[in-house]
């Protein structure tokens, strides 16, 4: 679509929405949100971008093939379950590492977080693939 307003707004919104999606994903463990929702938000940002500039440019902006993002996510999710094997627990048991750097920063690293990142990437990758492929499909 050749609309100056859409183009400008999209450039602005795109980064905002993507940042928001990451935020939603990270806060998901304690507040409403998480990998599924974050992924959907990010995917909608990219779909918006492709609506404004076309699928070719959207692919350009992604830099990596969209299915690779999904594959990467699946890999993260699966690998997050393997760590527990070192602790002698069953597959996908959650492990937590909360370093006490100082009082101000509350940092919690865990395998469920890695898993949620995987979900996030899978949702982005798969949905963007479907949308972009449909947009480009020829009769």
């Amino acid at each position: 679509m050749n609309s100056v307003i859409l183009h400008t707004a999209t450039r602005l919104l795109m980064s905002l929405i993507l940042m928001f999606s990451v935020y939603i994903m990270f806060r998901g463990h304690n507040e409403p949100g998480g990998g599924f929702i974050g992924g959907l938000i990010a995917a909608s940002a990219i779909v918006l971008y492709s609506a404004a500039f076309g699928a070719t440019w959207a692919r350009q902006a992604l830099r990596v093939p969209s299915m690779s993002i999904a594959g990467c996510g699946l890999f993260f999710a699966a690998i997050s379950g393997v760590f527990s094997a070192f602790a002698g627990s069953p597959f996908l048991t959650g492990l937590w590492w909360i370093p006490h750097l100082n009082i101000e920063v509350h940092l919690a690293l865990s395998t469920p977080l890695l898993f949620d990142i995987g979900v996030y990437l899978v949702v982005i990758g798969a949905i963007v693939t479907i949308a972009l492929e449909m947009e480009e499909a020829e009769d």
Binding site: H29, N30, G33, G34, F36, G94, W96, P112, F115, D116
Partner: peptide, 14 residues
């Protein structure tokens, strides 16, 4: 056990 306050998300990812 799972260090999460959002029960739905904890069920999903843990």
């Amino acid at each position: 056990v799972a260090h999460g306050h959002n029960i739905v998300n904890v069920i999903l990812v843990d």
